[in-house]
């Protein structure tokens, strides 16, 4: 067989191989093979720091819960997402370990935020807290009249939150994950109680 004939014989398979290689190289170079569900973050590793302190109670609560879920998942050796699904699907009966891990995770979250300087001072949140509370109008007016420095000194955010987490009925909270109103009531009760206890402790320390 002449060289030209041999070239003609193999030209087509070689051309096919080249075409396939070009297509596959372009696909892979642009991310082909890696297009799948996004990998989950390690709950034990610190997430990228959020800029600034939360400015609303809702944002503060969410940041604490997300950091708390990370801490709880890390303690339980699972992912934040798997723990969330687990709690959401089996919220009628969370285990003791889950309840303890979540409480510890929330306490860690408060420490982390305090260390990062992202815990807002109580005075920044007092208006929203009063709006949401069922105090009478006279009491709300009186509290709003207090200088920010007095509020911040009387109610250090980290102490109030730590007390709230200690007081929070985490098991009851987890059984009402699908009931927004009930969740809000439980959190409000815990925070209100924490504020009262913190204020009482302050007054005792003054005495």
């Amino acid at each position: 067989m002449s060289a030209a004939a041999r070239l003609r014989l193999f030209a087509l398979p070689i051309g096919a191989l080249v075409l396939v290689a070009v297509v596959l190289l372009v696909q892979v170079a642009n991310g082909g093979g890696r297009f799948g569900p996004t990998a989950l973050a390690d709950p034990c590793a610190a997430r990228p720091a959020q800029s600034g302190a939360p400015t609303t109670l809702d944002a503060l609560g969410q940041r604490l819960v997300l950091l708390g879920l990370d801490g709880a998942a890390c303690r339980l050796g699972t992912s934040r997402e798997a723990l969330t699904l687990d709690l959401a699907q089996d919220h009628s009966d969370p285990s003791d370990a889950q309840v303890a891990a979540l409480r510890a995770g929330l306490l860690d979250a408060i420490d982390d935020m305090k260390r990062d300087g992202t815990l807002p001072p109580a005075a920044d949140l007092v208006d929203q807290a009063l709006d949401a509370s069922d105090l009478n109008a006279f009491a709300k007016l009186a509290i709003r009249a207090l200088p920010d420095s007095v509020i911040n000194q009387a109610l250090p955010t980290d102490e109030v939150l730590r007390q709230a987490v200690e007081d929070l009925d985490v098991r009851a909270l987890l059984t009402h994950l699908d009931d927004g109103d009930q969740l809000s009531t439980l959190v409000t009760q815990a925070v209100t109680k924490a504020v009262q206890e913190t204020l009482t402790a302050r007054l005792h320390s003054l005495g």
Binding site: L9, L12, L19, G31
Partner: peptide
Amino acid sequence: ATPRVEAIAGTVLIAGGLVGLALPPS
């Protein structure tokens, strides 16, 4: 090309195309 060589080249193209369909970047 001979019919058989053409079929071999076509088979390579089909296999490569199917692998390409397995690896879309988006």
